[in-house]
Design a protein around this nucleic acid. Structure first.
Lengths: 208, 208
DNA sequence: TAGATTGTTAATCGATTAACAATC
DNA sequence: TAGATTGTTAATCGATTAACAATC
């Protein structure tokens, strides 16, 4: 009891810390202080220390953090000490590009299925997977016990498709369709829309 | 004077409101209350009203907001009442998929240039643009007065490429490379990394 | 030892929510 | 008119920052 719930905003920063720590490890560094890391990330040392303190004390006074150890701990916290299998739904340009994406494999994400409704696409090879028809989507996802899906279908069918994914046992959806999905609170949803990011910046670019 | 600076977190929500308002307009709706809109977005009515109030009063007591009028006003606020020309740097799978992406054109974003360093890609057609060599990138961007770039180059060259873009006069970068860019504060940067979003959700998916 | 840096507590800051008078 | 809903102010909540004792 007295379980302290870690704020989601803290969780959202951990993968970002991890990314830079991995980069530093690749550069041959062994230890890092919260101050050095904060400079690299464009945040504050206090915030990094506060965030990490939700999970325990990983550093050493006077010297900072062992990069290897911190990476290991963050991976454990985020459940990254396993390979996660992911289904991609929608084999358009974006779905195919994501299925190819090298950045997944090296970070423990394996795209194991790719679905589409277009008979011309079904059966074609994309990277190491073959496009399957959405008709068998629920059965195959449930059968393999997949928990994570990436949604790259057109906006008009995104909500129905998401509902079907939830029925099939999917618990987390990365949504690339430009609509806000309405789903049970138990399902985790992240929305990626380049247009929203661009429009946010356009505000600051003034009229001219 | 006494210029009230609108918090960036408010700005970041406006494109999201706009997206759903556009959808509602397409569905044939004419007016909407903050309450109805909030249900559709999964936020609160108070927050929508508070956010909009930074820019003036767009609604009518008793009836709510005219969807068309609100769309128009939000577009003006975000500087979307013009077509923005954008350069894509990196003609790999992702860069090409983004250059094709239909969702840009219909929302006032025009991809006018696509650069790569690979001589095999230079000169090939992608949608309506031809891949150009990065050697001429600065000159062409400066020449056309482009202010926004989308960066889809490999991580190792992302920082150098971003520096070159800033030199060329770019003021906003949408970064798809999996690293944190260090750039002058005057340059706006948004980072899109599907892995970070997936890892954030993996935290909640437990071990099993 | 002296210097550096952590983990944590308290202070500050900012964002969200609640409430309601104004009014369509 | 009565009901609905805005725009705004004040109250609450939560996140960030500052400060510092502990200690490597």
């Amino acid at each position: 009891m007295t379980e302290v719930i870690v704020p989601d905003i803290v969780i959202s920063r951990l993968p970002w810390y991890l990314q830079t720590l991995n980069q530093m490890a690749k550069e041959g560094l062994h230890t890092v202080s919260s101050k050095t890391l904060s400079k690299r990330l464009g945040t504050t040392a206090a915030q990094i220390r506060k965030d990490l303190s939700y999970f325990g004390g990983f550093g050493k006074q006077g010297t900072g953090y062992s990069i290897y150890y911190l990476i290991e701990q963050l991976q454990k916290i985020l459940n990254l000490d396993q390979v996660w299998q992911v289904a991609v739904v929608g084999a358009g340009d974006l779905g195919r590009a994501l299925t190819h994406y090298q950045g997944f494999a090296i970070r423990g994400i394996e795209i194991v299925m790719l679905f589409d409704i277009d008979p011309k696409l079904v059966g074609t090879q994309v990277g190491s997977v073959v496009v399957r028809h959405v008709d068998s989507m629920e059965a195959e996802i449930r059968d393999k016990g997949i928990k994570i899906a990436i949604l790259t279908v057109p906006a008009q069918v995104a909500q129905i498709t998401a509902d079907r994914l939830v029925d099939a046992g999917i618990e987390a959806i990365l949504n690339y369709a430009p609509i806000t999905l309405i789903l049970p609170a138990s399902v985790h949803v992240q929305h990626i829309d380049p247009v929203l990011h661009l429009q946010r910046m356009m505000y600051y670019l003034g009229e001219e």
